[in-house]
Simulated scan of single mutants.
Amino acid sequence: MRLAFVAALSLPLLLAGGPGLARPVEPGYVPGVEDLPLMPGLTAPTNGAVVFDQPEGRIVESAAQGDVSADAINAFYSQTLPQLGWRAAGAGRWARDGERLEITATRDGTGSRAETMVRFVLRPQ
């Protein structure tokens, strides 16, 4: 009886997802970077960013994943980031106001289980 009661109480929590589980963020931003949009189709852990504030500037490392091609990710950020003041600084690299941003996308898995992992690294220039 106790087990059934605990299971009944736990089910809504499992279905809703707990802290740190990946869930869609729409519209959303890359965790740790309040002005960097998260591409639709990507999900990110709610507490998945590592953020350091230092006198030279902030350092943020964050990640997201989804069933989106690396080409689509690159196209999205190539179109979006210039509108936010970022300047292209090489393949997957951007610069703005003394900061540099690097975005890398790699495909993991095969077949229907394949997902693209996207890594965002923001550092002072």
Rank of each mutant, 00 (worst) to 15 (best):
I73Q: 00
G85W: 03
P12W: 10
G17R: 07
G17L: 13
P27C: 05
V6W: 10
V121Q: 03
F52L: 13
L42M: 04
D97I: 07
A4K: 04
P24R: 11
V30T: 06
A4R: 08
A105H: 04
R93L: 02
Q83F: 01
V118K: 02
G18F: 07
Q65C: 10
R107Y: 01
R2A: 12
A8E: 05
I103N: 01
A49S: 11
W94S: 00
G90W: 00
G109I: 08
R113H: 08
Q54W: 12
L21P: 07
T116K: 02
L3N: 07
Q54M: 08
R23S: 13
R87L: 03
S10M: 15
L42F: 12
S69Y: 05
G28A: 03
W94C: 00
N74S: 15
L84G: 05
D53F: 14
F52Q: 11
R58F: 12
L9F: 12
A95M: 00
L15E: 04
Q65I: 12
F5L: 15
A114K: 01
Q125K: 08
V25T: 10
L122C: 06
R119C: 03
V121H: 08
A49D: 10
M1Y: 11
E99I: 07
A75D: 14
V68Y: 12
E26V: 15
E34H: 13
G90V: 00
V118S: 01
T106V: 13
D97S: 12
T80L: 01
E34F: 14
G28R: 03
A44N: 09
P124H: 06
G32M: 04
W86T: 02
I103E: 02
A63Y: 05
I73H: 02
D97W: 10
T46F: 12
D35G: 08
D53Y: 15
S62A: 15
I73Y: 05
R100E: 01
Q65S: 14
P40F: 15
L13E: 08
S69P: 03
A64M: 06
F120K: 07
Q54H: 10
V25Q: 14
L9I: 11
G20L: 13
R23Y: 09
R96C: 03
A16D: 09
R2V: 13
G109K: 04
L42S: 03
V50Q: 15
A105L: 05
S69W: 04
A8N: 00
P27H: 09
M117W: 11
R123F: 02
Q65Y: 15
E34K: 14
Y77I: 11
A105K: 01
F76A: 05
E56H: 07
F120M: 05
P27E: 05
P45R: 10
